[in-house]
């Protein structure tokens, strides 16, 4: 098997790591509210008064946390929040959209809060829209939703695959900020899936039920399933729009190694954001999720340090089109017009 004799290609396996981080973030969003409920039981010293189900919750959480903390009521305060804004041992991190939304709503800058978004912004400048692919708890569900859509499609049901203008989300971002400015409240948080999910999971676990945001989120799932694949992230998400803008000149980006590419177009098929890796067209939307790298049969995609995408490098050298050109060129010794064939 030629497949097995190939050298180890580390980038291929990043997609697995990505699924691990997505799963961990999502599990944390479920675990933190449970820990909070446990903390309140501890603080109230109420174990004997709890009904059986809550006792089970108490015991389970105690089992999980006992190796790490001696005083759960205070020590478990170390990690709080969600991906919208979180606290880690007193160190705060926030989504850049939260900061921008607050600036719009308050029409002034509260610097201590602004600083909490600096690290995410710095990472976005380097890695582009990585949040969308690697951390966002909504991505976890949206990608599973895409898989569900693929199964439904396989089963013969009709799923949506419409295409819209990708610039629509910048309009949504602008409209959300304008609305925040008008109402004097951070309204973008109401249409931003990771913020919604972080809150709603907490509501469901600690406050006894989902709020209205969950309806919106289920609507986006249906939109993705029935109208446009991964449509919300591609066309609507205001946070994705902001990340795209910040990460426009990201330093670390995926590139195609034209010598190894065989034009199979699997990368285009697998790309959740509908980008065009086959023609070197990643753009500011690419979230470095590495799904295309993982699926590439010839390992023709890897990372590079560059501020812009490579211009179109022509058809892959292992592909039929390129070999046809080469043959033709060899016989007629003429350059095919419009193609970069000087690399021969």
């Amino acid at each position: 098997m030629s497949r097995r004799s190939k050298p180890f290609f580390v980038w291929r396996h990043l997609n697995k790591l990505r699924w691990v981080t997505l799963t961990l973030v999502f599990l944390m969003l479920i675990l933190l509210p449970l820990l909070h409920v446990y903390q309140t039981y501890v603080a109230a010293r109420a174990y004997d008064l709890l009904p059986l189900s809550e006792k089970q919750l108490y015991d389970t959480m105690e089992l999980i946390t006992a190796p790490f903390v001696s005083d759960p009521a205070s020590e478990l305060d170390a990690i709080k929040g969600n991906t919208w804004s979180g606290t880690f041992w007193g160190f705060k991190l926030s989504d850049p959209l939260a900061v921008v939304g607050q600036i719009a709503a308050a029409q002034s800058i509260y610097w201590p809060f602004f600083l909490t978004a600096l690290i995410p912004i710095a990472f976005t400048v380097i890695f582009g829209r990585f949040f969308c692919g690697w951390i966002c708890p909504a991505t976890f569900l949206y990608e599973l939703n895409t898989n569900l859509g693929a199964w439904l499609h396989w089963a013969g049901l009709k799923t949506g695959n419409m295409h819209f203008d990708r610039r629509m989300k910048y309009g949504v971002l602008a409209a959300g900020l304008a609305l925040s400015m008008l109402t004097g409240s951070v309204m973008v948080a109401a249409v931003y899936p990771p913020a919604i999910l972080g809150r709603e999971i907490y509501y469901a676990i600690a406050l006894g039920g989902f709020g209205s945001g969950m309806i919106f989120f289920l609507g986006t799932l249906l939109f993705d399933l029935l109208v446009a694949r991964r449509g919300f992230c591609r066309y609507v998400c205001p946070g994705g729009a902001l990340y795209s803008l910040i990460g426009r000149y990201r330093v670390v980006r995926i590139r195609r190694i034209v010598e190894s590419c065989n034009d199979c177009a699997k990368c285009n098929a697998v790309c959740e954001f509908g980008l065009d890796p086959l023609r070197d067209n990643f753009g500011q939307e690419c979230n470095n999720c590495t799904a295309c790298i993982a699926i590439c049969p010839t390992d023709a995609l890897d990372f590079t340090i560059r501020l812009t995408d490579y211009p179109y490098q022509g058809p892959g050298h292992l592909g039929r089109q390129y070999r046809g050109q080469k043959k033709k060129q060899g016989s007629t010794s003429a350059t095919p017009c419009g193609q970069k064939a000087e690399a021969l």
Binding site: W84, S85, V186
Partner: peptide, 8 residues
């Protein structure tokens, strides 16, 4: 205008 609705 300051609250970002994070729920912390």
């Amino acid at each position: 205008s300051a609250c970002i609705h994070c729920g912390q």
